[in-house]
Nucleic acid binder design. Structure first.
Length: 210
DNA sequence: CGTTCGATGCACT
DNA sequence: GTGCATCGAACGT
C-alpha cells in the first residue's frame, strides 16, 4: 500500500510518471487529508538549471542529495511551502515536485485551511477541484510545512500510497513557473483533469497566420 | 479573454 | 541586495 523507498530509487522521470494516480496522505493532529496526485514535475541533477542543486550543495538543498523516498519541503516567495519527493540515489540530487491533487479525504479540513489564508478572508469557499490545485495550494490544504522537510514518505506522517486508482492518460509538457530549463518536457499530468494547475503552454511556433 | 503586479521570507551572492 | 519551482486580484483589450 505505502510505497517503499525502492519506488523512489529509480530514474526520476519514471518515478514522476508512476506518481500520477498515487495518493498523498497527511495525518495531522487536526485529522487526515489526502488526494490523488494528478500533476508533477521532475528536477534532475546539477545540470538541470531549474533544479535547486544547479549551483551545487547548499544548506537548503541537502535533502536532494540524501536518500530517496524522503520529502524535500521549502518555502518559496516567502509564503508558499512546496513539497517534493526525493528520487535517484544518494549523491545524485533529484526530486519530483507535487503540483496538484484530486482531493479525497478531509475536504472540509482542507477548505478550512485554505480559507484561513489572509488573502482569502471574506471570500467564498474554495471549490472541491480547486482545493489542491497548484503546489502552494496543496501544501496549505494538507497542512504541510517546513517541519515535514526530510520526512520519510514510507513512514509518515506524510506518506504516498497505491490505493488502486487509475493513472489516467499521461501528458508530458514543459515545466511551468520557472525561467530556465523550460525546454525540458519534465511536467507530467493527467490529461484533461480539472485539478491540473495550468494548461500546457502552446509550443511557440512561428507560423504565418492562416 | 490577456498581462501585470504586490505580498512576503529567506537562501544565496 | 537580488531573485525566486506562487497566488490571486487588478487592470487592459
Amino acid at each position: 500500500m505505502i510505497l517503499p523507498p525502492d519506488f523512489y530509487a529509480r530514474a526520476t522521470l519514471d518515478v514522476a510518471r508512476d506518481l500520477l494516480g498515487k495518493v498523498l496522505v497527511y495525518r495531522a493532529q487536526a485529522g487526515a487529508a489526502s488526494g490523488v496526485i494528478v500533476e508533477v514535475e521532475a528536477y534532475i541533477g546539477e545540470d538541470d538549471p531549474a533544479c535547486h542543486a544547479a549551483a551545487g550543495r547548499t544548506a537548503r538543498n541537502v535533502p536532494l542529495y540524501g536518500e530517496p523516498g524522503r520529502a524535500y519541503v521549502y518555502l518559496n516567495y516567502g509564503l508558499h511551502h512546496l513539497m517534493n519527493a526525493v528520487t535517484e540515489r544518494e549523491g545524485h540530487p533529484a526530486a519530483v515536485l507535487i503540483r496538484a491533487l484530486q482531493p479525497l479525504e478531509g475536504r472540509a479540513l482542507m477548505r478550512r485551511r485554505r480559507n484561513r489564508a489572509p488573502w482569502r478572508a471574506g471570500k467564498p469557499p474554495v471549490a472541491d477541484h480547486d482545493l489542491c490545485r497548484g503546489p502552494g495550494n496543496l501544501t496549505r490544504a494538507l497542512g504541510i510545512t517546513l517541519d515535514d522537510n526530510l520526512c520519510s514518505l514510507s513512514r509518515g506522517p506524510l506518506t504516498i500510497r497505491d490505493l488502486g486508482h487509475a493513472r489516467g492518460t499521461v501528458a508530458w509538457s514543459s515545466r511551468v513557473g520557472i525561467r530556465v530549463g523550460t525546454d525540458r518536457l519534465w511536467r507530467a499530468s493527467v490529461a484533461g483533469h480539472p485539478s491540473v494547475s495550468r494548461p500546457s503552454p502552446e509550443p511557440r511556433a512561428q507560423s504565418p497566420k492562416p
